[in-house]
Design a protein around this nucleic acid. Structure first.
Length: 454
RNA sequence: UCCUGAGUAGCUCAGCGGUAGAGCGGGUGGCUGUUAACCACUAGGUCGUAGGUUCGAACCCUACCUCAGGAGCCA
């Protein structure tokens, strides 16, 4: 039996006879002649009010209908005399599918995100996490739409890899050898050391140099001991890679991508946005609207350093050409100076990985980072070095073996083309889109140092 | 990994050297087309763990554990 979800019932234009609805009880209130059940099935933020008269045969069950119980209700969808909802279901029968008892920890009062993290198996039933995960699903779909509408092909790059996307971070080892084994890597399952991927970029380049425009969208793993609200050991990344794109075109695509997603967010997640704006971050909708309406600011790394030096601001870390921009510097640029997302480009060569394209000045590479207020870096990308001789020099300078990266150099050896791409952290984007300030609350089951529950 | 702060009832918190508290949630009763319903009663706690100081410690000190915020690394 398939029953209509609450979302579709609440969208009804008129009363409907004989409906069956199923869901979980958020709360029950007794009245003299009837009981009121607030029913939610996760199909939307709002719940459906069920009114069950005490004269029904099922009335003896009412005391057992506690918060968290699952019930099946048959009745009529009628206009509600109460002020807080247009429709309600006047029950003819209420059936308990699964009971709940007084030990069910979710109350109708607010819970802290920290407590909800300790019950990851129940937290999707809350308004906050339910909203986050509905948004997550719709944004994932919008990402595919954005790229597919522009003739990008979705490529499934490997999860297990033997190549290190240098500069992306520490890797998790994948092995079938017993713990503490002294066996050589040649004796391992794959005959060589293998790892969980830190990026699909290098393999993405293979396909961009064949299908022209591709994207990957999948899980990524970093074994960094990072303990912050913005890092997870397992996260999802969107990585487009485009042949015949230069850095300018790359930056343009990154901006268009973010704006497309925000437009889709406003169109498909209105209720959730209102909820976040009310309970999570009161400046959220205004900030997203501003991001959508205004062009992203662009500034070269060199100009950004000048801006920081001339700001008259005292920073904890000194600003110096050739040094990484620190969090406080990025925050100053995005939150105070530009007060909007800002794309910083042309970073010092010494700060970046081997595959980024060297600029004519000899000291910078065609790299770019998109910084957004409140989160910091949300996108990192570059034009790739397409000139074989320069790529080989860079590999040598980074101490990479020619043999391991021969396949990568082959892309330049045979029909090389200018190409570029970027990576966007999906969870970072969701934090920006929802105002939720901890990455652990925008991913269903967070993996962070010391934590891999479920 | 470093710095800072916090751990008291199922949840959110008050108490900060002298008998362990409230609201919500649970139970019982009442009232009521209610909507974070309301009213009364009630059950529920080795005050994170282990040491120490003190006549006396939830409170002061030390170590450890856990969590949070910030930093580094990055997406």
């Amino acid at each position: 039996m398939v029953t209509p979800n609450i979302r579709s019932l609440l969208a009804s234009k008129e009363p409907v006879q004989d409906v069956t609805v199923q869901g979980w009880v958020r709360t029950r209130r007794d009245s003299k002649a009837c009981t009121f059940i607030e029913l939610n099935d996760g199909s939307c933020l709002r719940g459906l009010q069920v009114v069950a008269d005490n004269s029904l045969a099922c009335a003896e069950l009412y005391p057992k209908i506690l918060t968290g119980a699952s019930v099946r209700v048959t009745g009529d969808l009628v206009t509600s005399p109460g002020g807080k909802q247009a429709f309600e279901v006047l029950a003819k029968n209420v059936e308990i599918i699964g009971e709940s008892d007084g030990t069910y920890v979710l109350q109708k009062k607010g819970h802290t995100p920290e407590f909800l993290r300790s019950i990851s198996h129940l937290r999707p039933r809350t308004n906050l996490l339910g909203s986050v995960f509905r948004v997550r699903s719709r944004m994932a779909f919008a990402i595919h739409k954005f790229f597919q509408e522009q003739d990008f092909f979705y490529v499934h790059t490997p999860i297990i890899t033997s190549s290190d996307c240098e500069g992306a971070g520490e890797m998790f080892r994948v092995t079938t050898l017993p713990q503490g084994s002294a066996a050589k890597p040649e004796e391992d399952f794959f005959g060589k050391p293998t790892f969980l991927t830190v990026s699909g970029q290098l393999q993405g380049e293979v396909f961009a140099c064949a299908l022209s425009k591709i994207y990957t969208f999948g899980p990524t793993f970093r074994a960094e001991n990072s303990n912050t609200a913005r890092h997870a050991a397992e996260f999802w990344m969107i990585e487009p890679e485009m042949a015949f794109y230069d850095l300018e075109a790359d930056m343009g695509l990154a901006e268009a991508n973010v704006k497309y997603l925000l437009k889709s967010l406003f169109e498909t997640c209105g209720e959730e946005l209102e909820f976040f704006n009310k309970f999570v971050d009161t400046g959220l909708i205004a900030r997203l609207q501003h991001t959508l309406d205004k062009p992203f600011q662009r500034v070269s790394y060199t100009d950004a350093v000048d801006l920081l030096l001339k700001s008259g601001r005292k920073f904890e870390y000194p600003v110096e050409w050739g040094q990484n921009l620190q969090s406080e510097h990025e925050r100053f640029l995005a939150e105070e100076h530009f007060q909007s997302p800002v794309t910083v480009f042309n970073y010092p060569r010494s700060l970046k990985p081997f595959y980024m394209r060297q600029n004519d000045d000899g000291r910078t590479v065609a790299a770019m980072d998109v910084l957004v207020p409140g989160i910091g870096e949300i996108i990192g990308g570059s034009q790739r070095e397409e000139r074989l001789d320069l790529l080989e020099q860079a590999m040598a300078a980074h101490g990479l073996s020619e043999e391991n990266y021969r396949w990568y150099a082959d892309l330049r050896r045979f029909g090389t083309v200018p190409h570029a791409g970027f990576g966007m952290g999906f969870e970072r984007f969701l934090m920006f889109a929802t105002g939720v300030s901890n990455i652990r609350d925008v991913i269903p089951f967070a993996r962070t140092p010391g934590h891999a529950e479920f």
